[in-house]
Design a protein around this nucleic acid. Structure first.
Length: 419
RNA sequence: GCUGGAAUCGUGUAGUGGCAAUCACGGGAGACUGUAAAUCUCCUGCCUUACGGCUUCAUAGGUUCGAGUCCUAUUUCCAGCA
């Protein structure tokens, strides 16, 4: 048992940048940072066993309290001995609050328009002004309709903390309100202010629950505050200042970004957040630029479902760009997905075989593809960590991004420290 | 050999006298960022960048203002009988 939920030790700071390496110590083990946290929303990393997650280098998994509250229920997970025993993964866990679902089950999915991916398009701007389908937010909490059976739910920040503590992950997120960056400034400010009030409510309940854990001889758990503020500089900075003064164990940075925005938005925030606390960039990492820019501007951990989701849909990372393994040009390609990759899939199988599995709808294809994509991203962040340690970060970044995106596009991700 | 039935897009089908091509599968391509996602979107007879144009319902005739649809013959397939 531990009374210390989390310690963060910075092992190297890269001069002239916000990038650093470090170690997050939790009751269930250490996370060497920067690190990519594997997405395990529904208490599973889709198509992968915990052993496979470990083998591909996954240090930690993120689960989602909204999904688990609905199914199988947090009491059941508690009864099973907590998420570590329930899933049989004994490394550190993050849990998300359900705040993202306020967005994803709400306006983001209105009429099938997904503004997470089309946040620059005009039609999406219309969608955010219409009423959401499955959620409604007020000051006290969020009214959900279950996406499973349509039943009415009401979730408060306190309830989210109760759920997360029952699930028993090592690091929790505050229940926040994620709002589209296309919303009006007034609405973004409203959501950000509400997120701050909710953060205090989360912290209060979290501290009470930790006192109970100590009384019961159980491990205490950690809580991250979640910074919001859309793309508005003053709101982002205000959010970082406000939450930075609160006694959180670390910070999540929430919102919806294009990769190019990391160098502004994330920097605004990380210049202000306490330097000695870990920072998690929520939901980003679907492409390499996210990872390099995130680290450069002070991110310690990422999570993103894209590697596994895209894998299941046939989009596979390679060092020279993303490929769609279903394309007919791979039918007789007997090379590995990526010759530079050290994953189980690339060491043992060909593009032609994996394409065949996809075309035949065979489930092994999903697993092999997921192993590869997850390893690609986890491994890239690992190498970024090494490159900070030996001060070769900018060389590594340049060579990686130029090969992945091409020289022209890679220029978009250059930084002042690099130029 | 006889009797009956059938023939429409790569495949299986919808269309039962009024602008043929519905749906599914197969095929081609794109998207996916704190997972309502092994999902979604687009294309899939030919020509055309597009607008648009052209072809086509086994084959050949016939009836009809008009035929994938009705009639005749042929071909092929299926079923039953011999």
């Amino acid at each position: 048992m531990s009374n210390k939920p989390l310690t963060f030790t910075i092992t190297k700071q890269l001069t002239g940048t916000l990038a650093r390496t470090g170690i997050i110590k939790t009751p269930h083990g250490d996370i060497k940072t920067p690190a990519f946290i594997v997405g395990g929303t529904q208490a599973t990393v889709k198509t992968l066993s915990p052993e496979q997650v470990t083998q591909l280098g996954g240090q930690s998994i993120l689960v989602n309290s909204y999904h688990l509250m609905l199914r199988p229920g947090v009491e059941l997970i508690h009864k099973a001995g907590g998420i570590h025993r329930f899933m049989n993964f004994h490394g550190p866990f993050f849990s998300d609050s359900g705040g993202f679902q306020v967005f994803s089950l709400g306006m983001a999915y209105k009429k099938g328009i997904d503004i997470t991916s089309h946040s620059k398009k005009g039609d999406a701007a219309q969608a955010i002004n219409t009423k959401s389908q499955l959620t409604k937010v007020d000051d006290d909490g969020v009214h959900f309709r279950s996406h499973l059976d349509g039943s009415k739910l009401f979730i408060t920040p306190e309830m989210s903390m109760d759920f997360q503590h029952k699930i028993g992950a090592d690091i929790h997120m505050c229940f926040d309100e994620l709002i589209s960056p296309l919303a009006s400034r007034e609405n973004i400010k409203k959501a950000t202010d509400r997120t701050h009030i909710w953060a205090k409510r989360c912290l209060d309940r979290h501290n009470q629950l930790n006192i109970q854990h100590i009384a019961c001889g159980e491990d205490v758990q950690a809580l991250y505050g979640v910074v919001q503020g859309g793309r508005q500089e003053d709101l982002r900075k205000g959010s970082a200042e406000y939450l930075g003064k609160c006694d959180f164990d670390g910070y999540g940075i929430g919102g919806v970004f294009e990769p190019e925005e990391i160098s502004s938005t994330v920097k605004w925030v990380n210049d202000i957040l306490p330097i000695n606390k870990p920072r998690h960039l929520l939901g980003m990492g679907s492409q390499p630029a996210d990872l390099f820019l995130g680290v450069e501007y002070g991110i310690d951990t990422f999570d993103c479902v894209a590697p596994t989701r895209q894998a299941r849909n046939g989009a596979l990372f390679t060092h020279s760009g993303r490929i769609n393994i279903k394309n007919s040009c791979f039918a007789q390609d007997f090379s590995p997905i990526d010759v530079e990759c050290d994953c189980y899939t690339c060491k043992n199988f060909t593009r032609a075989y994996i394409r065949h599995l996809f075309m035949a709808n065979e489930i092994l294809g999903l697993t092999l593809a997921s192993i590869h994509n997850e390893r690609f991203v986890v491994g890239t962040v690992d190498k970024i960590r090494d490159s900070i340690t030996d001060s070769s970060f900018f060389e590594y970044k340049k060579s990686f991004l130029e090969k992945y995106y091409g020289v022209d596009r890679a220029c978009d991700f250059e930084s002042s420290g690099q130029k």
